[in-house]
Computed example of a mutant assay.
Amino acid sequence: MAYPLVRHRRLRNSAALRNLVRETSIEVNDFIAPIFVTEGEGVKDEISSMPGVFHWSLDTLEQELAEIVDLGIQSVLVFGVPNHKDATGTSAYDDNGIVQRAIRKIKAMYPELVVVADTCLCQFTDHGHCGVVHTTECGADIDNDESLVLLTKAAVSQARAGADIIAPSNMMDGFVTAIRQGLDEAGFTNTPIMSYSVKFSSAYYGPFREAAHSSPQFGDRKTYQMDPANAREALREAQTDVEEGADFLMVKPGLAYLDIVRMLRDRYSLPIVIYNVSAEYSMVKAAAQQGWIDEKAIVLETLIGMKRAGADLIITYHAKDAARWLQENR
């Protein structure tokens, strides 16, 4: 039988048919929602560069948590903005620090909510770097090994407060080994590590640094964050974390590094996490406010692209909006 050279596509039932053969899907369970907790009372301050994202004090935090839980989001990533900062970031490993108090409050209100604790020093140091800095005549250097001691103390303190997952974002060499050993010795053998395995020195972090009050006061983080041009180095970093005992592997940022996500997915069976970072969020929000894009369509297409690339979990500031849109689509 001869077929015509031009074939026609029927329009009716197209959505249902597309759904039947869809290869990739996104669910609310895929999302981890970041939250910024700060000192003070009565604080609900919108972050100017991240519309819809707020600083919360402990007494107002329940507003945000109730909405997150009501939308079916099962996990949050906690960032703390302390009042006190010093050279060694002591507030990061203070059992009464802002992150530790926030974790205890979250677990008391919503015990089933999975709390991921960001483990770094940059928000807590007066210089804004992710480790201990020593100044010499030739400049300033990060002391990797001294930093590991303090980062491990922070991780143990966070676990003691009730964190379900420790997420080290500092990029010091050997941080997974150090934190794993510290957690085990403190009795937290079942607390997993979500490693920021592949964290690039990126221009996409700008709005976050406003949100977390974590901009470096001098220099930059290029000596301990990765060159965006390097893919093979990303694989070496991930392999090191696997060997050291990481339980999750993260790629940060997201959009410009989907090829790295796919490389990790093809090589490792561990859960792969992607961080849909602040500037990726802010650019969408800014364009949507101008009426230049369909925000819902852009966000859902971006998130499905991250899942298609191989991510199992997505840390995203769009989490609440995306969860709401997915409910509407049911």
Rank of each mutant, 00 (worst) to 15 (best):
L151Q: 07
V284W: 04
F31S: 02
A286F: 09
L121T: 05
V133A: 00
L121V: 10
V76W: 00
D184G: 10
V115S: 01
D70E: 15
Q217E: 11
S197K: 07
V114A: 01
M283L: 14
L183Y: 06
G139K: 11
T223V: 13
E46Y: 06
L71A: 03
T177L: 12
R330D: 12
R308F: 09
V132W: 09
S75K: 13
Q225M: 07
L148H: 02
E328Q: 13
F208Y: 02
F218E: 08
Q181R: 13
A92N: 10
G187Q: 08
Y93L: 04
R22N: 11
V176M: 02
D30Q: 06
E237V: 09
F124L: 09
G40M: 10
S91E: 13
A159S: 08
Q100K: 12
I298H: 05
A66H: 14
D184A: 14
D126P: 06
E112Q: 14
T191N: 06
D45C: 04
Q100M: 12
G291T: 04
N13C: 05
G139H: 08
C130W: 06
D321W: 02
A140T: 10
T302A: 15
S202F: 08
G162M: 07
H127L: 03
Q158I: 05
H134M: 12
G245M: 03
R9I: 12
L255V: 10
G245Q: 08
G206Y: 03
V78P: 04
A212S: 12
D141Q: 14
T136E: 11
Y204S: 06
T302K: 11
V284D: 02
R101A: 00
L313I: 09
H84Y: 14
D173Q: 12
S195R: 05
Q63M: 12
A309L: 07
R232D: 14
G128V: 05
S157V: 03
K320R: 11
M172K: 05
M1N: 04
G131T: 01
D247T: 06
V76R: 07
D266I: 01
P34E: 10
F31A: 02
